[in-house]
Design a protein around this nucleic acid. Structure first.
Lengths: 186, 186, 186, 186
DNA sequence: GATGAATGAGGATTCATTCAT
DNA sequence: TATGAATGAATCCTCATTCAT
């Protein structure tokens, strides 16, 4: 499973810079921004971008992978040492806030338009979120009849809404509060 | 105020066909689908599309206008002869369902990307929705502290989520129910 | 040779209006202005323009024909009752001034780009101009060695220069004076 | 002041070929010839043309710049080591001849239609020409009352006339002689 | 591995011309 | 005849992707 060649230091550095630049550019300009601009922002030539990511789609996928990865990490940290009764709520709010920052770039949690990569990660994220939900339910802080797919639906909806409509911090907070109240026991 | 010329029958027919085709095509393929494809689907030549809508943006705007118009009509009908206590909830559910059918085409309720047209209609829709909310609050079916911008936020979120993630009818129903319960008094 | 049908009154009126509009539009915007705009300016529908002038080129040719015709008329009038010694000079100046007014529309006297109609009229104009030149030479006001093709060359050059560079009235006057002095005896 | 990157050899070669091809094509077909044809003539893909000249207008401007540049160079050479009494006349004739070869491409000396580029070069050319004129006047070979703007007018007129009407070498020669005689002292 | 020039399909838009009303 | 809607080839320009340096 380990890649045959360990990748040169400068190559690895470039890969990271491209990824960062792409995240910024696509966040600002939408996914229809040109790859050329990503290259410029990263300070590399266009060829270098395509060497690392043979296709624009690959680049997009890589961004999503990275972002999701960090989201999953956060969830696992919460599972490990958070309060089971509140971790679920905290994570929901965290996801919405984080996505807002990341920007329109990617439908982090749902595949849009032409689907990009089926999403082992999505499953991982969903699964992890499921654990948080179960824990909260066991702790009695979430209404027992709430199901995971509903939670995911609320989450994707909120994220998309926030991204597309550009909610203010205040509005986002109130809205998320409303939603979470709907899930809370009593 | 009446338009100078009533528009020839064939022209009106074509305009409608183009609009319908565009709604379909953009729904299926996103707004980056080519105008050429819209023309093909409508069974007209590319020039005809541009005669009716001098710009792709104009075409998009026309679709949005039409869709929003029908949504506003529905709201006004509900105001006129619906039960004030339930009209609000019905309309929310209706909007989500309707949008799901219309597809990604349009950010019905929020302007996305490069804003298209200032949005007098958006204001109209918001205003109308506000009336429904007020009526419901007066009827005691909605929690008194619920504010209009939160409702709109929940609505856009749900619509976007449903569109992007392609919820099943069942999932959409459960999710909407959850959300509306969060707004309901008691 | 007489046309089979005498042309309806409104048709003749339209033809004239189109011609006038075309002269204006092409003068203002160059020959690449759209036929549609000519129609609009003439207050007729685009189809009417094409009924009278099956091709844009035909329209252009018609304008040139008309303009040239009036120029020839003027020359003949001068031949008939002008002073043979000065008529030539007057006509040269007249042509330059007139062309300046007509505008870039057409290379009145020389065919440019894709040639438009070989030019029986051109020959007529040249011939008439030749008569004026001969008369002046006979009257001793023009240097004997001046040849007609040189005169035509100076004329077209001056016209084109004036059109393209937009000379002021003053500059045009001084330049024409210079040129005519070059042709004058002594 | 030195350009950041020296431009790759193949790129420079292509740029030159495109410029040459464009000069030819526009000379033959007028400036409304398609960029596609320029690309074909240059033996490159259309994208290459646009990489070097982002806009058709840029391409046109580049041609004009190049041509004018060479004209100015020639004038400066004449100023440096020509006979002040004849350099002016030589240059006038040279300009007309050269323009005839270059073709309709460019309004070398006057901006036509939508003006392209403010024309620092035009000023430079005019200025240089002024120097030649002054020198000739000082040398007593040009009539003292001849003014620069008249000379420029005669020049542009002659150039345009020659271009548009396609004078023969002989006719051009005789016409230029006539004009220059009009400027010559005695 | 990196660079950046070249490629060429694709997409929006214009406009001369045709044809149904 | 006049009208003006429809046609579709042509044009400018963009951008993902390839490839020589």
């Amino acid at each position: 499973m380990t890649p045959s060649k360990p990748m040169r230091a400068d190559a690895r550095r470039n890969r990271a810079r491209i990824l960062a630049a792409a995240e910024e550019v696509f966040a600002e300009r939408g996914t229809s921004a040109s790859t050329e601009e990503v290259a410029a922002r990263a300070g590399v030539a266009i060829g270098t971008v395509f060497r690392h990511f043979p296709t624009k789609r690959d680049l997009l996928a890589a961004i999503m992978k990275e972002v999701r990865g960090s989201l999953i990490d956060k969830a696992e940290a919460l599972i490990a040492d958070g309060d089971p009764g509140t971790a679920f709520f905290d994570y929901f709010a965290f996801l919405v806030e984080r996505s807002t920052k990341v920007g329109t770039v990617v439908s982090l949690l749902a595949e849009e338009g032409t689907p990009i990569e089926p999403g082992e990660q999505i499953r991982a994220l969903t699964h992890t979120f499921g654990s948080l939900l179960d824990a909260a339910r066991d702790a009695g802080t979430v209404r027992p009849e709430v199901r995971l797919d509903e939670v995911m639906a609320l989450l994707t909806g909120t994220v998309h809404g926030a991204l597309a409509a550009g909610w203010s911090d205040d509005l986002r907070h109130r809205t998320v509060t409303l939603i979470l109240d709907a899930l809370r026991a009593h």
